[in-house]
Amino acid sequence: MATAKPGAENNSTVEKISCTLRQFASQYPFENLDVVTQNTMPITETFLFQKFSQYRGGLCYELNPYLYLQLKEEGYNVKLVSGTISNGNHWALDGTHVLILLDLGDSLWLVDAGFGNQLALSPIQIDGMAVSSAAGSFRARRLQTPKGTHVLEMKSEEHWIIKYAFSLKELPWKKLTDIKEQITFHEKSPFNSSPLIAQCFSDQTLSVTDKQMRVRFSKTGRQKLVKFNDPTEFMKEVKTLFSNSIFEKTSEYMKKAEKHG
């Protein structure tokens, strides 16, 4: 793997975007509440601005397009592409992960704010050096796979594991709504059966479902696992940890779930 370092100008750009990614991740969690409540509104710029102005979060097809719009507005050369998640021995739904590619002229970088709580919180240079965050160590490189020409890998003990594959072809904006529909209704979608709210901070990662909360502290590697005995405990944690709009949307889901048994 290459170990080339970006030049001074690119270093400055990477640090600016890293700062943006850290702020973005602290404000907007990865959450599937629109999916489990079957919100079918199309992904438009207006929809994203309205949703994120309420300090909601979203899935990759919302988080990364919203960040893409911000980066594009600031003058960066960015584009959206799609990828396919690898679940060890099999691939997930084809092309349903959305990510950003940043072109700095002499180098290409992966930017991802929508991969659960497994976030690098920094651009990752393709065929460049690995980067680390509270979630772990990441690298991006060219590798031909059945699902694309490039991969994002995450280190597990001493091994690098493919987390998703992608190609460099730009994703048309209209495809975002198609991806949303697949994630919302496809029988093999991993996000349409129960609520998930996850976040990556500078010193810890957090994951909350209706069954449990898991916190991992990066400095010590220690994990805190809290099992919920009933929905009240789950809702109490959501109210404590997240925005009012997320709490309200979670309440909507819980009422529907209770009604349908």
Rank of each mutant, 00 (worst) to 15 (best):
P6Y: 05
P6A: 12
A8K: 14
V14C: 14
I17R: 01
I17Y: 06
C19F: 13
R22C: 15
E31W: 05
N32D: 03
N32G: 08
D34F: 07
D34C: 14
V36R: 02
Q38P: 00
Q38L: 12
I43H: 09
E45G: 06
F47D: 00
L48N: 03
S53N: 09
S53Y: 00
C60D: 00
E62G: 10
N64A: 00
Y66L: 12
L71H: 03
E74D: 15
H90R: 11
H90D: 15
H90T: 08
L93N: 10
D94R: 08
I100Y: 02
G105D: 04
S107I: 07
L108S: 03
L108Y: 05
D112N: 04
A113S: 14
L121V: 01
M129Q: 15
V131M: 02
S133V: 02
A134L: 01
R141N: 06
G148D: 04
A165N: 15
L171H: 08
T177I: 09
T177S: 13
K188Q: 13
F191N: 15
S193D: 01
P195C: 04
P195L: 08
S202D: 15
Q204W: 01
T205R: 00
V208A: 10
T209H: 02
R214G: 07
K219C: 11
K219V: 10
T220D: 01
Q223T: 13
D230C: 11
P231S: 02
F234D: 00
K236T: 04
I246V: 11
K255V: 14
